[in-house]
């Protein structure tokens, strides 16, 4: 059994965030996640793929085959309209939650 270091929702959010800028393939997304989270949130790279597949089934992402920087065939993911909407609402949720947590922490100190 693979352990989830990320909660599932968080992983999806990060993927959406990464793909907002430009379409990317699985490997690329994984590298970006390492970059964004400054390796603080480590993730077993393989668990990215079930998440991607799930998001495609939910209609947040679409995929098409393309050629990568070093001329390899790779599957590129990009946001759909639904995915974009999802990202916006998730971002609001997370910000609200983060604010709430921050609030609790500051009050306690």
């Amino acid at each position: 059994m693979t352990k989830h270091i990320f909660p599932q929702g968080a992983l999806e959010m990060v993927v959406l965030r990464v793909l907002r800028a430009e379409p990317n393939h699985g490997w690329g997304i994984a590298q970006k996640i390492h970059l964004i989270s400054r390796d603080v949130l480590r993730v077993e790279e393989g668990s990215l793929y079930p998440a991607l597949a799930r998001m495609v089934q939910k209609g947040w992402l679409k995929s098409e085959w393309g050629t990568s920087e070093n001329n390899r065939r790779a599957k590129y993911y990009s946001l759909t309209r639904l995915g974009r909407k999802r990202l916006e609402s998730e971002q609001e949720n997370w910000q609200a939650m983060a604010a709430a947590i921050a609030d609790i922490l500051t009050n306690e100190s």
């Binding site: 077993e44 790279e45 393989g46 079930p50 495609v56 089934q57």
Partner: peptide, 18 residues
Amino acid sequence: TDFGGVDQVAERVRDTWG
């Protein structure tokens, strides 16, 4: 090792197809 179990990942991807 970084990737995790390839077969397990493949199974979990298949799970999402319904």
